[in-house]
Design a protein around this nucleic acid. Structure first.
Length: 327
DNA sequence: CACTTGACCTGTCCGC
DNA sequence: TGCGGACAGGTCAAGT
């Protein structure tokens, strides 16, 4: 489930791969994955050059020379995977994933640069599965289409994610960006900011508050649990009952946990892969997430899974004690 | 306004 | 082996 570190990892990968390339074609098989694809694509997407890839909160922005941007939200199961010509050579490390794209989760295909004009003659031909050939055909392409050039796949098993084509100047005006909170890793984001923004949610639980994208951007279920464990705060604690000391501890924990995960290439829990189809290794460093039944590294007590704010929530019941009710 | 719940989806897993 | 239901979780709309 892509949260800030995963989206940041995809952004860094795409920023290395995409700028300078031209979008030469588009196909998609699920309208809701690209709701306005039929209106502006011919004029502002096809033929446009990719200038820069950016991230804000959990949203990817691909700026184009047409002064439009592709705005992309991966939600829970979205993937953006670049596949270059080299996949037809032998032994790409991520071949088991990228060698079979498009697969049944592929929703949108962006064809890049010299697609259709530079068919590789001498490349090693791989045996494609019947399913893969059928998928190409469902996108209106021949089974040999994947030998023609570079492609960017938008895959999304659960169809919650989306791609939109929006004038670059209007991107800050979409509802989500008008409401979304600060970037937690920005130096501008201070403990005072954190305290002020949390006040609006003083009556809810601390977990619900840090999952609220209008409080701060980019935290999802994995890093909420990890940060609360690091700060030794029980997730059901009311925001107003979190002391200043604990709040400041949480502020630092959020930054530390997100930064560590970026350094590890994000968390590959179920679906997440980076821009080249590779997985992240953060979960090997996670202290509580998906570790129920295992011993807490800090105190040895058994990590448990509970339900908070409608989400599966992982805690160490010894390190994270709920406040006692005052009567 | 604050807060909760349901909807959007598909794949996996668990109990019968 | 099949089958129903719970669950996974980011965001928005609609509800209290």
């Amino acid at each position: 489930m892509p949260e800030l570190p995963e989206v940041e990892t995809v952004k860094r990968g795409l920023q290395k791969l995409l700028p300078g390339r031209i979008i030469s074609g588009l196909s998609f098989d699920w309208d809701k994955s690209f709701p306005n694809a039929r209106t502006d694509v011919e004029q502002f997407l096809i033929g446009a050059k990719i200038l820069e890839v950016k991230r804000r909160a959990k949203v990817l922005l691909i700026e184009l020379s047409s002064k439009y941007s592709l705005v992309i939200h991966l939600k829970m199961t979205g993937q953006l995977v670049f596949v270059g010509k080299e996949r037809f050579g032998a032994g790409h490390p991520n071949d088991s994933l990228i060698g079979n794209l498009p697969d049944k989760s592929t929703r949108v295909i962006f064809y890049l640069s010299d697609y259709k004009y530079n068919a590789s003659k001498s490349s090693v031909k791989k045996q494609r599965s019947v399913q893969n050939q059928e998928r190409w055909q469902s996108f209106g392409e021949t089974p040999e289409a994947d030998q023609r050039g570079e492609v960017l796949f938008f895959n999304d098993q659960r169809k919650f994610g989306w791609v939109r084509l929006i004038p670059t100047l209007e991107v800050p005006n979409i509802n989500f960006f008008k409401k979304v909170g600060p970037e937690p890793l920005s130096e501008d984001f201070t403990t005072a900011d954190f305290a002020t923004r949390l006040k609006r949610r003083s009556n809810t639980t601390i977990k619900a508050a840090i999952l609220d994208q209008t409080v701060l951007a980019g935290i999802g279920n994995i890093y909420a649990d990890e940060a609360l464990f690091t700060a030794r705060i029980h997730p059901v604690t009311k925001v107003k009952d979190v002391s200043a000391v604990k709040r400041n501890r949480l502020f630092l924990a959020i930054k530390a946990v997100l930064q560590l995960s970026i350094d590890k290439g994000g968390s590959s829990d179920r679906n997440y892969v980076n821009a080249e189809g590779g997985r992240g290794s953060y979960l090997g460093f996670a202290k509580v997430f998906r570790r129920e039944g295992q011993a807490c590294e800090r105190c040895g007590h058994t990590i448990i899974k509970i339900r908070v704010a409608g989400r599966g929530t992982h805690i160490c019941p010894h390190c994270q004690k709920p406040l006692k009710e005052k009567s």
